[in-house]
Structure formats: C-alpha cells, structure tokens
Nucleic acid binder design. Structure first.
Length: 331
DNA sequence: CGTCTTTGACCGGCGC
DNA sequence: GCGCCGGTCAAAGACG
C-alpha cells in the first residue's frame, strides 16, 4: 500500500474524520481500488446473495464488514482473515490493472460520505446520555481499509430513513434510475466547488429523497445518496414474467433500478448503518431491492456493494435465510 | 397547462 | 446568543 492510501486510512480511522474528508483530501480512489479486484469468478455477489443472479451475468463481489459493538473492537485496522478475504487476494489483485475505459470508486456508507452527517452522529453520541453507541467498521475493498461509523440506538429528535449511497463515474449528475424525481433544492457544498442537489420522488405517497453531488477530488465521480424506500414500483420499468425476483426483492422496491443504470458507469454501493431503527434486517430490505429490475443486458461489468454488515449476510442465517439462497451461501 | 428546475429565503441543529 | 451550515420551502420561470 502506498503512502497516500495510508494517509487516508489514518484519516478515516480518526474519530472526527469522515469518508468525505478522505475524498476531499484528493485520495485517488480510482487507482487505489482497482476495478478488477473483486471481479473474479467465485466471489460472492450481492445479487447472488439476493438470488437474482439471473439478472446479472457476472458475479458481484462482497466485502466483509465486521459489525461489532464498540466495546468489543479496538480502533485499529486489525482484520480477521475470512474465507472471502482469502478469495480476494490483495497481492494478486493489486497486480491487475483497472479496466482501461472505466474506473472504479470505492464506496462507503452515506453517513461516512457525508461530513455533516458524520459530525452529527458524533455530536449526538456525545451529547445524549441515553445514547448507546455502536461502532461499526466498514472495510472498503482493501482488507486494511476501514471506515468507522457510529450507529446509535437513541431517542433522537429527528429520526432518519435508512440511507444508501453509491459513487458513480459519470459525466451526468442526475443518473437515470427508473424513478421520477423532482428537484427541490440545491446548495453549495462547503469545501467543494460543486453544488449538491436535492431530489424527491414525485410519487405522492413516496417520500424517498436523494442527494446528488460530485466528488471534490474527482469531478468525474458522482455521489448519490438515497434516503428511504420507495413505496411503489418503478414507473418506468415493468418486470418481465420470466425474471421474477425472490420475494424479498419483490417486496422492497429499490430506490434505483439496476436496468436503468448506465452501462459504462461503475456503481459502488454502500449502506447506511445509522438508520433510525438500526436494524440489520432493515438494511437488507433496502439492499434487496436491487433485485427489482428487468434485465441485465446493459448492466455494468463490475459491481461492488457495501453493507455495514456484509459478513453477516453470509454468516447470519438468522436474519437472511429468507433472502439468501443456498447457492449464494455455497458459491 | 402541467411538470420540472432554479434560486433566494427560511428553519433547525450545533459549535463557539 | 450568535453565526455557520445542511436541509427544505416555495415562488417564479422555463419547457414541452
């Protein structure tokens, strides 16, 4: 790992540093997290986990996200090697160049992506005695890179919907995702020349929101954060009869539709562990919606998904057995 | 005319 | 209390 990466890891490890600050530091994510790293066969994809591999011809990679109570984990980059880690050899992967025509960007929780939100979480944790702090480390593609997040079980004044963020290499700010959005605001972002746009789903009963902003360090990268879950199917997509998703995927429409994603972009997903309920299952609900799509013909070649507890997706049979199919668990 | 974007004003939370 | 900042509102305008 080169010096730049070490710096970012240090930043992310620091309590008062968010992922967005790491981004703002100019960290070359596109080179640091090679797009080829997680594309090999045999890796367990999130779509695989969701039982929707028929939609996507190439496997998707998963990362491990040790979700542990703060009292049980040290603030360090120490990692326990898992089965999947072994599958994704850092040495082997680092030798593979990124796809020439595309580049990939690491993803992180939307909270981590947002400086203000991270600070807010820290403030809340600090200021409320009744807060029960839960620290979660997200490993971002490299086994040694973690983001520390604080999920709270608290009587917060303002409860937020679960959030889901991803970064996309795109020239277009507002990516087509199968839903209709109404822009209701735009604000200048501190320390960034690029404004942040606020969108709301146009469906009457749906209060899903999303924020779109460009990365300061890499203007070609668009950071999209979804908040909430759609209460309706995509108005622009109809599902073919032969590609019925698993029940879980059908039950929770995704904020974006995979088939609508632009084919030449790389999407890197992350999930908010700071949802109001802080329920893992709630997060899976949202992620499972990725399966609500129609076709895979124009989908991207590489996909990366982050969940705050990706390892639990594999090992936690209590929560995910209803979603994860047998072949996912035994790829 | 309906829908969507733009943009300044406003509000609430937080740090100092 | 004040100022900063993120997020939202809503009127006005653009567009098909």
């Amino acid at each position: 790992m080169d010096e730049k990466k070490r710096e970012v890891i240090k930043m992310i490890k620091a309590d008062n540093t968010s992922f967005s600050e790491a981004i703002s530091s100019g960290f070359p994510f596109s080179s640091a997290f090679d797009s080829s790293e997680f594309g090999e066969k045999g890796s367990l994809g999130f779509m695989d986990l969701l039982g929707v591999t028929d939609y996507f011809p190439t496997p998707i990679s998963m990362f491990d996200f040790p979700a542990l109570a703060s009292s049980n984990i040290p603030t360090s980059t120490t990692t326990a090697t898992t089965k999947k880690e072994a599958m994704v050899s850092t040495d082997a992967l680092s030798n593979q160049p990124a796809t020439p025509n595309t580049s990939s960007i690491s993803s992180a929780s939307s909270e981590a992506l947002n400086e203000e939100q991270t600070k807010t979480a820290a403030r809340a944790t600090k200021g409320q005695k009744q807060t029960v702090s839960l620290t979660i480390f997200l490993r971002i593609q490299r086994p040694t890179l973690y983001i520390r997040l604080k999920a709270k079980k608290t009587n917060q004044k303002k409860q937020r919907e679960p959030r889901f963020a991803f970064m996309t290499k795109s020239e277009v700010d507002h990516l087509e995702d199968g839903y209709r959005w109404r822009k209701y605001g735009q604000k200048a972002v501190k320390n960034s020349p690029f404004p942040r746009s606020y969108y709301r789903c146009t469906s009457a009963s749906c209060n899903v929101k999303k924020r779109v902003e460009r990365s300061f360090s890499d203007p070609s990268v668009v950071v999209t954060t979804y908040e909430g879950q759609h209460t309706h199917p995509s108005p622009l997509i109809s599902r073919p009869a032969h590609a019925a998703p698993p029940p879980a995927a059908a039950a929770f429409p995704m904020p974006f539709q995979r088939s609508q994603l632009l084919p030449h972009h790389h999407y890197h997903f992350a999930h908010d562990v700071l949802s109001s309920n802080n329920s893992n299952f709630g997060n899976y609900d949202t992620l499972s919606n990725i399966g609500s799509t129609t076709n895979s013909a124009n989908f991207l070649h590489e996909r990366r998904f982050c969940t705050p507890s990706g390892s639990a997706l594999i090992t936690d049979h209590g929560l995910l057995q209803d979603i994860v199919t047998s072949n996912m668990l035994n790829p």
